[in-house]
């Protein structure tokens, strides 16, 4: 995949925006052009949250992704909202613990991964979003494991460096799924 144009979507509180930041930061560390654009306003207050993330070798024209080549959906309303916007040939990653539905489109690659359940079973509660990043890495190679490790060190605040290890564990869980 040359450019990453992703939409990440779910409920507020699932770490959707953070998931986007991690992906964007990995691009920054890779010295690529990146952008991250959240949905904002009343939408954020308890409802759905989504963000657009782009990584490219060229300057990014539109940080607002309308037709993503990657969709990560962490709830049903988000899947329903964005599934038809995904480019043919695109990748759809679904947290199947939270989304009971199967995708009807056959021109996209769909992965169902029970990320929330995996997080809970592995004492990684709250890191389902990071597991999904791991899966995306494995599918697209948007960044290497070394870069991701640097990224996690960067996005985890200095006083919370003990969280680096569980985050990397979550990345690897996703990548190995």
């Amino acid at each position: 995949m040359k450019d990453l144009n992703a939409i990440l979507a779910g409920f507020g509180g699932q770490g959707i925006l953070f998931m986007g930041k991690v992906i964007a930061y990995s691009g920054l560390i890779d010295e690529k052009e990146v952008s991250w654009l959240p949905s904002y306003g009343p939408e954020m207050r308890g409802g759905t949250a989504n963000c657009s993330v782009c990584i490219s070798d060229d300057p990014i024209c539109s940080p607002l992704v309308i037709n993503p080549n990657v969709l990560i959906a962490m709830n049903l309303p988000s899947l329903d909202k964005f599934i038809n916007d995904v480019q043919p040939g695109g990748i759809v990653i679904i947290d199947s613990t939270l989304v009971p539905k199967k995708v009807e489109r056959d021109d996209v690659t769909v992965v169902y991964i029970p990320a929330t359940e995996m997080a809970e079973k592995n004492s990684l509660k709250g890191l389902a979003n990071i597991i999904l990043i791991g899966k995306l890495m494995q599918m697209t190679n948007f960044c290497s494991m070394e870069v991701m490790e640097k990224t996690i060190q960067k996005v985890v605040p200095p006083r919370k460096q003990h969280l680096v290890e569980p985050n990397m564990k979550a990345i690897k869980l996703g990548a190995e799924f």
């Binding site: 990146v34 991250w36 607002l64």
Partner: peptide
């Protein structure tokens, strides 16, 4: 505008 204000870039 809201897009430039809200977006993150390097």
């Amino acid at each position: 505008d809201g897009m430039l204000g809200q977006m993150m870039e390097p």
